[in-house]
Design a protein around this nucleic acid. Structure first.
Length: 210
DNA sequence: GACCAGGCACATC
DNA sequence: GATGTGCATGGT
């Protein structure tokens, strides 16, 4: 399995090249994006983040003090804007209280402690937590998302509806613990999923893994 | 107009 | 533990 998973990675990398994830100007922008992209296309998230940047509000302190309705109106393009405003505030409260809104301070903490803390924040589940750990804080954690599961399922490497933790440990037990590798591998799976592994088309036509 | 998108919490059985 | 539902916009 180790050789197989690494062979898939090499093939994807040869085919698509570096993905330059996560597309953001700062760790804090990654954290916000990780919450906004929940069950939402990235294009819509970019619009929301663009609106926050335009108003110069992409800062933990400013955002935390901003009225709910103001945040909701700015992030509206990302959908679920009321619940995401609440989730952003929950995260910001945690981030400011525990790490003074500093990604650098946060990155000094123990990885398992960080993951437990993030998962205890309302609105942050395993994928959002791991996205923050890997793409904002450069921690070697493998991120599993809908594309990851679909691609693996289509290639019969996992069963349908496999649990998050199971899929994650498949990667983490069979690959070298390497932030760069985990970063690139997940991004490549998303790239592959977007291009060749659509939900309502069981045949992945043109998939380079076939 | 239907379907989908880089999830999560909560209710119910 | 499994299953169902609400949350919402914008692109195809």
């Amino acid at each position: 399995m180790s050789r197989k998973l690494y062979a898939i990675y090499k093939k994807l990398y040869r085919c698509f090249g570096r993905q330059h994830w996560w597309p953001a100007d700062s760790p804090f922008e990654v954290m916000v994006g990780a919450i906004l992209t929940q069950n939402t296309s990235w294009g819509n998230v970019e619009k929301a983040i663009g609106a926050l940047k335009k108003e110069k509000l992409l800062s933990a302190g400013k955002l935390y003090r901003l009225a709910h309705r103001k945040i909701a109106s700015l992030i509206r393009p990302a959908g679920y804007y009321n619940i995401k405003t609440k989730r952003l505030k929950s995260f910001l409260s945690f981030f400011l209280k525990n790490y003074q809104g500093s990604a650098k301070k946060m990155s000094l903490a123990d990885i398992q402690k960080l993951r437990r803390q993030l998962l205890s924040v309302n609105g942050i589940g395993p994928e959002t937590a791991d996205s923050i750990l890997l793409y904002a804080l450069n921690k070697p954690v493998f991120v599993v998302d809908a594309y990851t599961k679909r691609v693996l399922c289509r290639h019969r490497l996992i069963k349908e509806n496999e649990e998050y933790a199971q899929v994650q440990s498949l990667f983490m037990q069979h690959l070298k613990t390497d932030t760069r590798l985990f970063n690139e591998y997940h991004a490549l799976l998303v790239k592959l999923g977007k291009e060749f592994c659509h939900k309502n088309k069981p045949l992945c036509q043109g998939c380079p893994l076939n």
